[in-house]
C-alpha cells in the first residue's frame, strides 16, 4: 500500500486517514450485509465468517512471525480478506472449508508476494477460486433462504444460465436477499448501504462499480435471451455476486488501476468477462474470475492510462 501511494497520480493531497483506518472502515461497511446473511441463512453463516476471519488473521500473524517481518495483523487487511472470503461462500459448507480457503488466501494470495500492497490478485478471490476448483460440490450447494434447515437449492443465476425464467423469485426478493446464494452476496439492500457509505466518504470512487454493473447490465440485456435485446438484465444485476464484487472486491486499492480512466477500462473489462462466463461459460457465475483476470491486466492498464508528465 505504501508503495502504491508513492506512485499515485496527482493531485497529491494529504489525508489524515491511514491504511489501517480505511481497512477497518471498509470492514465496517460490510457489516450490514453480514448481518443480513446471518438473518437469511442462520447461524451457520456466522460460523463461516468467524472461522474465515480467524484463520486469515492467524495465518497472517504466523507467516509474518516466521519470516521475521513486521507484524501488521492489526491493520485490518487480513480481517477484511477473511470476511470477504466468507461472504463468497455458501452458508452450510463444512467447517474446514473457510479455514483452508482463508489460509490459502493469505499465504498464497498475499504473503507469497510480499504482503499487503505487493499482491497482484485480490487475496479473498484467490481463496474462493481455489476452493471452487478444489471442492466444487460444496461451493455450488446452496441453502434455501429463511429455512435454516439446509435444504439445498439452485441459485437464480444457474436457472438464468440454463435459459429458464425465474419462478417464485421476484425482483424484490432478489433485492432483499430472499434467494439461495453466498452469505454476503444475497442482500443487495445491505450491500448498497455499505457501498453508499464508502462512496460518500470517498473511500472508493464510482468508476469501477458503475462501469462494471452498467456493462454487465447492458450486455446481458442485449445477449441474455434467445433473441437480441430481450435479456433479463435486472435479474443479472441483482443475482450472483455482482454487487458485492463490483463495490467491495473490484475496488481493492492494491489490485485495481490508479487513474479514473484506467478504472473505467477495468470495470468494463470485468463486466464483459462476467457476462461471457455467465452466458456462454462452464460456470453459472463469473464475477470472481472476471475480477481476477482484470487484476492481472491492471499493471498494463496503469501503464497505458498513466497521465503524461507535464512537459514531457
Amino acid at each position: 500500500m505504501r508503495d502504491n501511494l508513492l506512485v499515485s497520480t496527482s493531485p497529491h493531497l494529504h489525508k489524515k486517514e491511514s491504511v489501517k483506518m480505511i481497512m477497518w472502515l471498509v470492514t465496517l461497511s460490510l457489516v450490514p450485509s453480514g448481518l443480513a446473511g446471518i438473518f437469511i441463512f442462520g447461524l451457520g453463516a456466522l460460523w463461516v465468517m468467524a472461522l474465515a476471519v480467524a484463520a486469515a488473521v492467524i495465518t497472517e500473524f504466523a507467516l509474518q512471525a516466521v519470516t521475521r517481518r513486521k507484524i501488521t495483523v492489526l491493520d485490518g487487511s487480513a480481517v477484511l480478506t477473511g470476511l470477504l472470503l466468507a461472504y463468497n461462500l455458501p452458508a452450510d459448507v463444512p467447517f474446514w472449508l473457510p479455514v483452508v480457503g482463508a489460509v490459502f488466501s493469505i499465504a498464497i494470495g498475499k504473503q507469497v508476494f510480499g504482503g499487503l500492497g505487493q499482491n497482484i490478485f485480490n487475496p479473498a478471490l484467490v481463496g474462493r477460486v481455489f476452493l471452487m476448483a478444489s471442492w466444487p460440490k460444496y461451493m455450488t450447494t446452496f441453502v434455501k433462504p429463511m429455512s435454516y434447515d439446509a435444504v439445498t437449492s439452485a441459485t437464480p443465476l444457474a436457472a438464468l444460465t440454463e435459459g429458464k425464467a425465474l419462478e417464485n423469485i421476484s425482483y424484490l426478493d432478489l433485492f432483499l436477499g430472499n434467494r439461495p446464494g453466498c452469505i454476503g452476496e444475497v442482500c443487495i439492500l445491505a450491500l448498497l448501504i455499505g457501498a453508499a457509505f464508502l462512496l460518500l466518504r470517498k473511500y472508493i470512487s464510482w468508476h469501477i462499480p458503475f462501469s462494471y454493473i452498467f456493462t454487465t447490465g447492458l450486455l446481458s440485456y442485449v445477449f441474455g435471451a434467445k433473441t437480441l435485446f430481450a435479456g433479463d438484465w435486472i435479474s443479472h444485476i441483482l443475482s450472483g455476486g455482482l454487487v458485492l464484487g463490483a463495490f467491495f472486491m473490484a475496488t481493492d486499492y492494491v489490485t485495481s488501476p490508479l487513474t479514473y480512466k484506467g478504472q473505467l477500462v477495468f470495470g468494463i473489462g470485468c463486466g464483459l468477462i462476467t457476462v461471457v462466463i455467465r452466458l456462454w461459460g462452464g460456470y453459472p457465475e463469473g464475477v470472481s474470475y472476471a475480477i481476477l483476470i482484470m487484476n492481472a491486466a491492471t499493471p498494463m492498464i496503469d501503464r497505458y492510462t498513466r497521465p503524461r508528465i507535464y512537459g514531457s
Binding site: 481455489f130 476448483a133 478444489s134 471442492w135 466444487p136
Partner: peptide, 15 residues
Amino acid sequence: NEFILVMILAPGALL
C-alpha cells in the same frame, strides 16, 4: 473424496 482437486488440475501444477 475430500482431496484438493485443484492439485491435479493445471493450476495445481503451476502452484
